[in-house]
Design a binder for these strands. Sequence first.
DNA 1: TATTTAATTAATCAATTGATCAAATAAATG
DNA 2: CATTTATTTGATCAATTGATTAATTAAATA
Lengths: 208, 208
Amino acid sequence: MKANRGRPSDPGVQQERKTRLIEAAHNLLAEKSFRNITIRELASEAGMQSAMISYYFGSKEGLFIALLEDLSTQHFSSLEHLADSDEPLKGFIFATLEYLRGSRIMGRFLIDDVVGQPGPLGERFMELFPKRMKAFLPKLITQEQNLGRIRKDLNPRWAAFSLMNMLLMPFFAEPVRERAWDISKQDVNSPQWADHIYQMFIQGVEEK
Amino acid sequence: MKANRGRPSDPGVQQERKTRLIEAAHNLLAEKSFRNITIRELASEAGMQSAMISYYFGSKEGLFIALLEDLSTQHFSSLEHLADSDEPLKGFIFATLEYLRGSRIMGRFLIDDVVGQPGPLGERFMELFPKRMKAFLPKLITQEQNLGRIRKDLNPRWAAFSLMNMLLMPFFAEPVRERAWDISKQDVNSPQWADHIYQMFIQGVEEK
DNA sequence: TATTTAATTAATCAATTGATCAAATAAATG
DNA sequence: CATTTATTTGATCAATTGATTAATTAAATA
């Protein structure tokens, strides 16, 4: 086959092909984890040769880092306005679930792939998601403490971390949720689920 | 080297060598995940040849299944008495944290290893831990609902799942917890952490 | 037009790793 | 003592896979 070889006329072609690879990575992450995605699959999904991954991104890891950078920027900029809103924590919970619902990367674990092994992907992931979240969410909680809406004896960082665990785990650990706990995708995408998390976080389970 | 070859005099030798392999698997899981442990490492840790793993357990997966079966039996039998105790949920939270503290397998993720890929290990893991937990914990919650201590509008299964997420995630996702959220191993092993989870679960964060 | 440069392919490399197997060893058996 | 059986070793196999490279193509450049 000799289609599309050689130097392209349009300089935008290069950017478009990089984007296509990033999208291929994004799509495949909906079904399998980083390590289970081969550069051959990525190339096939994007309609080019596997060598293009090294050519454009240096390595398979480089490609996924580029994807994560896109996603992180996107996500955190959508959270910016919350600090000035009426019910920031409610807003945060609903926005996070909305994001997780739409994201194609949470169906499978990234964590073990990413932080279980030393390497640039793990380092970058840590900065792009958990560290940014730690810089963001405890501030919201402190703000609510100062307004007298949240217990002052609470450690804002610990509470933020626990909330993230309740929010994220059902999406990360999808197979456990579905097959062991019988909680369907429909369940976690429902407004009832968002309410459930919100109520658990705000009021706990106690009968009063 | 010709040490310990041939048919052993003591028939208990076989059981002892199997145990040694299981212990090797347990030890190595403290540092790395299933897929990152090679049969060569396992063999070396146990002081024998890698072929013994297939010989005794059929495969690398078979060895880890044997380990998980041991651990599951052990853990769930330690929970049995809770249903008849005064504060079963408090007891459950403290016992679970106690177990996680002592367990060497939670330092690294098992989930992606185990449920991210089809295979016998994933199937067995699902039955041995999450499914057993789903059969156990919601019952405790329902019991407390009937005693009027927990809100009746709560879905016991959903609440149980959310509690497990708060409890487990800090141990599964150790690197995220430590490096991104600055929550140390000492923190999650402290009585304050157990209290934090208990308070969050029972009362939530609301100021009253 | 001739040369250089960028982009792409197809093939190959090199490392890892789970599994297997023949040979070796020694206890059990008759 | 001779044979059989269980156990263990050391070496090898076979598959996967990320990366690299030489060759090829065509646009850009002079």
